[in-house]
């Protein structure tokens, strides 16, 4: 007697449960299509434009961030190191190499929601192209570590995973489609714990 209502309830439960859960999951998992990735670094050069796909538009409406315009800059994000392992705040990493051409760049660590980690005003927690110490060939090596390091040190005081955010300001990178040839700095794990 209750077969038809039960079946209707089942269909509705799957439709609403599955539809809402999958939409929320999709918007949390990714910023949308149209990503460019260079090694571990990922950027979305069209996320702020009208050309962004519906997922990107829904994501940016939920996040409510002030995105960078094309002439302003491009934000790269790394959640993994060069080997594909998630960045852990208990480990030390070296960010080495050169950035693509840009007038300025800034590098800082952020939590999973993109909020900068501020370990305290007494620690260096971010670095930019003016303050970084470079080698003779103008390449740099930045130590992202919970332990104090010489030269370029970005301090971590956090537990769990984190992400690195490298913002290139006034860069031709943002407007070009030939991004695949660009070289981004490497992110290499140098050790974990107090070692």
């Amino acid at each position: 007697m209750f077969r038809i209502p039960l079946l209707a309830a089942l269909a509705l439960a799957i439709a609403f449960g599955g539809g809402i859960a999958s939409a929320v999951w999709a918007l949390k998992a990714t910023v949308g299509f149209g990503a460019i990735s260079i090694g571990p670094w990922v950027a979305f050069p069209e996320a702020q434009t009208d050309k962004a796909d519906p997922y990107a538009k829904a994501h940016r409406a939920r996040a409510g961030e002030l995105l960078y315009g094309g002439a302003e800059g491009l934000m790269f994000m790394a959640q993994v190191d060069d080997k594909g392992d998630k960045l852990s705040a208990a480990c030390s990493y070296d960010v080495t190499g050169l950035t693509p051409q840009a007038r300025f760049w800034t590098l800082y660590a952020a939590n999973a929601d993109g909020v900068p980690l501020r370990p305290g005003s007494d620690l260096p927690w971010a670095i930019n192209s003016w303050t970084v110490l470079r080698a003779e060939d103008s390449s740099f090596s930045i130590h992202v570590s919970p332990n104090a390091k010489p030269d370029n040190w970005v301090a971590l005081r956090h537990s769990g995973t984190f992400r690195l955010i490298l913002t290139l300001l006034d860069t031709p990178t943002a407007g070009s489609s030939g991004l695949i040839d660009l070289a981004m700095p490497k992110v290499v794990k140098t050790g974990c714990g107090d070692a």
Partner: peptide
């Protein structure tokens, strides 16, 4: 139900 879920997914993403 799955077809409904797919439709609802699209509607949510577009309307959100």
């Amino acid at each position: 139900g799955l077809v409904g879920a797919a439709l609802l997914h699209i509607v949510i993403v577009l309307v959100l």
